[in-house]
Design a protein around this nucleic acid. Structure first.
Length: 455
RNA sequence: GGCGGCGUGGCCGAGUGGCUCAGGCAGCGGUUUGCAAAACCGCUUACCUCGGUUCGAUUCCGGGCGCCGCCUCCA
């Protein structure tokens, strides 16, 4: 398969370093606030990449980190008057709720920065030893001028960056571009002991240390949002390659941003932005479809209207997969197998999920026709659609019957209503349908039988 | 100001040097149906602008206009 490599600025054929084993390090959250749709898009992009590689037969080790100590976490803990660890754990927990609801495949490991202080310190010491770092009164800085390739990922040159510098440089830095490897603790700040004194890790070093620990000095794929390209990923390269002398990452994978225009992004305007809030109103499959109907690298506009649109579209797929028998069958027909080839062709092309959905909608149309005609091929088409949807991580397709007794009751109600319809007592049969609709149960009369679904 | 990207029909969104120019949503007209829903059939609206290359460009190249991201923590 081909994936777009930010480092090369083009699509490249993906080949792992070692056989069919693939290491992926994906930049997770700084656990300072609730996961929002932008985070979700990133995690979902990583999830699709991982699932598809696994489908293609690769053995994937997937690392998702948590940065669980940083300035904002500390600030928030002061504001709330609680321990900083409580903040980190709160949002980490929310991440896991999102992961579970959205059926994002759990990572192989979830390393936390604070659990890798030793690895981080070893890396900093190594950089200091190699003269890529300098210590000023307990603050250890990375000396950007020492790293020849600085800027190779983001396409920036050191000169430009100096001109464009917009923040007040820390007085202990030699150069405004230098970044922190180890940050000296100010009074009241949490700290860890180190050879440099009490302090905490800098802003980028944890990813370098943890990526190398779990996946080796050179990793196949390192991913995250495009907003991490600079400075986060650029600095990771500088640190890691200076320390090891080896390439840090072979393929850089970055997803596009989620934008909010028109309305201001704030809780007061009622614009839901937290994933857990959105999930109160829309199903995980609708949200997933919304995010995957655009290519992962394109910017994505988020609005209620657009999600509503996605909801209608998803219902078309959902209606189809809830038709007929629940049974799935093996795909034997060569004609049908061609569709799987198409699916692979599109996914191989840098995960072109929009084309995959075009294919799925074609199949839904064909499948519906077969269904109407009572053709056996219906089940085969449905099975392929389910196969593709599962590879993309959609889930929970089965009719949602809250319990057996609800199902049994509905069967009785529908039977009675059927009698009423036969007696042409439509006022009553329509009342039943309306009342059930108000409960969130949709009754649909088909030629031969009546079906129901929950909304 | 610098770097990068984008501009497709009412909306979203793929793609391609020419062959009906994906797909979804919305709209309209049918079929079906007691009605509704679902489904099927049909229809309507494209490729920002100006040049260039070409037999031919929405697709390649250049200018312009507009939009976005990054340049500061950020998925």
């Amino acid at each position: 398969m081909r994936i777009y490599n930010t480092l090369m600025k083009k699509e490249e054929e993906f080949k792992p370093l070692k056989g069919n084993k693939v290491g992926i390090y994906f930049c997770g959250m700084t656990v300072q606030d609730s996961p929002h749709i932008g985070h979700l898009r990133a995690f979902l992009s990583g999830d699709i990449l991982r699932r598809y590689l696994e489908y293609r037969g690769f053995e994937v080790t997937y690392i998702l980190n948590f940065t669980d100590i940083d300035d904002k976490i500390i600030k928030k803990s002061w504001e709330e008057g609680v321990d900083w660890r409580e903040i980190a754990q709160r949002y980490e927990k929310e991440y896991f709720e999102v992961e579970k609801s959205m059926n994002i495949k759990p990572a192989s490991f979830y390393p936390r920065a604070t659990q890798h202080i030793e690895e981080i310190l070893n890396l900093v010491l190594k950089l200091e030893e190699k003269k890529f770092a300098y210590n000023v009164e307990g603050n250890v800085w990375y000396d950007v001028s020492k790293f020849k390739h600085y800027g190779k990922l983001s396409g920036k040159s050191i000169d430009e960056l100096v001109e464009g510098a917009r923040i007040e440089p820390d007085p202990t830095k030699k150069d405004p571009l230098d970044f922190s490897l180890w940050k000296k603790a100010k009074k009241k700040e949490p700290y860890f002991y180190s050879p440099f004194g009490k302090g905490r890790p800098g802003w980028h070093i944890e990813c370098s240390a943890m990526s190398m620990k779990y996946l080796g000095e050179t990793v196949d794929i390192h991913g995250g949002g495009q907003d991490l390209i600079f400075p986060h990923h650029e600095n990771e390269i500088a640190q890691s390659e200076a320390a090891t002398g080896k390439p840090f990452v072979r393929y850089w994978f970055h997803n596009g941003p989620v934008n909010l225009r028109g309305e201001k992004m704030s809780k007061s305007t009622g614009l839901f932005f937290r994933v857990l809030d959105v999930l109160k109103e829309y199903s995980p499959n609708v949200l997933k479809y919304f995010l995957l109907k655009s290519h992962y690298r394109s910017p994505l506009e988020y609005s209620r209207e657009l999600v509503e649109n996605a909801k209608s579209a998803w219902e078309r797929i959902d209606n189809f997969i809830n038709k007929g028998e629940i049974r799935e069958i093996e795909i034997k027909n060569p004609e049908t197998k061609e569709y799987i080839k198409k699916f692979e062709e599109y996914m191989d092309d840098d995960l072109n999920t929009p084309r995959v959905f075009a294919l799925i909608f074609d199949l839904v149309k064909r499948g519906n026709l077969y269904y109407e005609k009572g053709d056996e091929k219906f089940l085969e088409i449905k099975s392929i659609v389910l196969l593709m949807l599962r590879i993309l991580g959609f889930t929970d397709f089965e009719r949602k019957i809250e319990s057996k007794i609800v199902g049994d009751l509905l069967d009785i109600i529908i039977e009675i209503r059927q009698k009423l319809r036969e007696e042409k007592r439509f006022d009553l049969s329509d009342k039943i349908r309306n009342d059930l609709k108000n409960l969130g149960i949709i009754i649909e009369d088909k030629k031969d039988k009546t079906s129901y679904k929950f909304v």
